[in-house]
Amino acid sequence: MTDRTPPAPSLAQLRALIAVADAGGFGEAAAEYGVSQSSLSEAVAKLEALAGRPLLRRTPGGTVPTEAGARVLTHARAAVQAAADALLAAQEENGGLSGTLRVASMRSAATHLLPPALAAFRARHPRVTVALLDSDAGGGGAPAVRSGRADLAVILADEAPDLRLSPLPPDEYLFVAPAARGTHPVTLAELGAAPLILPPHLDSCYRRIRTYLAARGVSLTAVSEVEQDSVILSMVGHGLGVTVMPRLALLPLPPGLVALPLPEPLARPLALAALPHRAGLPVIRAFTQAVLSHLPVPELPAKEPGPLPVPVSAPPLN
């Protein structure tokens, strides 16, 4: 019987396609990965011959996948990742882990939640390199995990039910105003009366805060949208309005400001996310355990609202 199984692409060909698509061009991919442009072109051409159609096309803005190429890329990433995972699965936590672990995180969590776990993990598994990726600048942590650009990510738990989630302490939202306001309790009327400065409307924090206020019948006097947290806090400090911001994004609280609990609690649910079929890999499991074992102790709420305390500094990221 004749074997009619069609030829399969090689991992090298799939890696070439991924490299060019991610870099936006053959020359850019060649420079980034230290290979010749001709070898990438040859690998992609052979892959396109196997597929029977173009997978990439050149545009004025760079080289982008065709519709077929976008579909192929999804499986190419999974195939390349699965090949690497085959060896990762053979490792033993007690026998010494090695390799590179890519962890995407929003800046606030990377600053205040992850450093204790990073220090403990590095001490126990010195042959694993942990690369931190900025999910604020990279389109989000959940998409990075799904695409294989990150192995783990700190994300908002209610935005990725398809991923394997390890819950982290919720991040409480606080009302922030000039310190001259004092520390008496915040009211819903106050939230509606003062000019409110928030992140852009496409930001999840904006949507969460507006939903919270709308559910309580708060009609806002004025809303300004500002992209950078530091700019928002500076504007509040200069009396241009007030804001509502997650606790982790506030630390350390700039001088001249006061941060107080909202009239009714609001928090963003954080979680460490991985693809379900990869969550059991020894290196991913070990890092997840390190994070869960070294979480900062949550502060108990005061009986009377007071200014946001400044925590002990976390170990620096190297």
Rank of each mutant, 00 (worst) to 15 (best):
Arg127Phe: 04
Pro305Leu: 00
Ala290Ile: 01
Ser36Gly: 15
Pro261Ile: 01
Asp203Thr: 03
Ser313Tyr: 02
Val128Arg: 13
Ala23Asp: 02
Leu253Phe: 07
Leu87Arg: 14
Leu202Lys: 07
Thr111Cys: 00
Ala83Lys: 06
Gln228Val: 01
Leu213Gln: 05
Ala78Leu: 14
Leu14Glu: 15
Arg124Glu: 15
Ala119Thr: 12
Leu253Arg: 04
Leu251Ala: 09
Glu225Met: 07
Ala215Thr: 10
Ala222Glu: 15
Phe26Lys: 00
Leu55Ser: 08
Leu260Ala: 07
Arg77Phe: 08
Ala76Ser: 11
Lys303Gly: 01
Ala160Gly: 02
Leu191Asp: 12
Gly182Thr: 03
Glu32Gln: 06
Arg127Val: 00
Leu262Phe: 07
Ala109Met: 10
Leu240Glu: 15
Val242Asp: 11
Gly241Lys: 10
Glu48Asp: 09
Phe175Glu: 10
Pro276Ser: 03
Pro311Val: 00
Pro315Cys: 01
Asn318Phe: 05
Ile18Gly: 05
Leu262Cys: 04
Thr221Val: 05
Leu55Arg: 06
Ala21Gly: 04
Arg247His: 13
Pro316Leu: 09
Pro195Gly: 11
Leu240Lys: 09
Arg107Gly: 12
Ala109Asp: 12
Leu308Ser: 10
Ala194Asp: 11
Gly99Thr: 09
Asp171Ala: 04
Ala78Glu: 15
Glu264Ile: 01
Ile18Trp: 01
Pro115Val: 03
Leu97Glu: 14
Leu156Glu: 13
Leu11Ile: 08
Leu165Met: 05
Pro115Lys: 05
Ile209Phe: 05
Leu233Trp: 11
Glu159Leu: 10
Ser36Val: 01
Val130Met: 12
Gln228His: 14
Leu202Ile: 04
Asp171Ser: 06
Pro200Tyr: 10
Ala119Met: 09
Arg208Pro: 01
Arg247Pro: 07
Leu11Asp: 14
Ser234Leu: 09
Pro169Gln: 09
Pro60Met: 09
Val297Arg: 02
Phe175Met: 06
Glu304Gly: 01
Val291Ser: 06
Ser230Leu: 08
Arg278Ser: 06
Tyr212Val: 02
Val231Tyr: 09
Val103His: 11
Ala273Glu: 05
Gln13His: 08
Arg146Met: 08
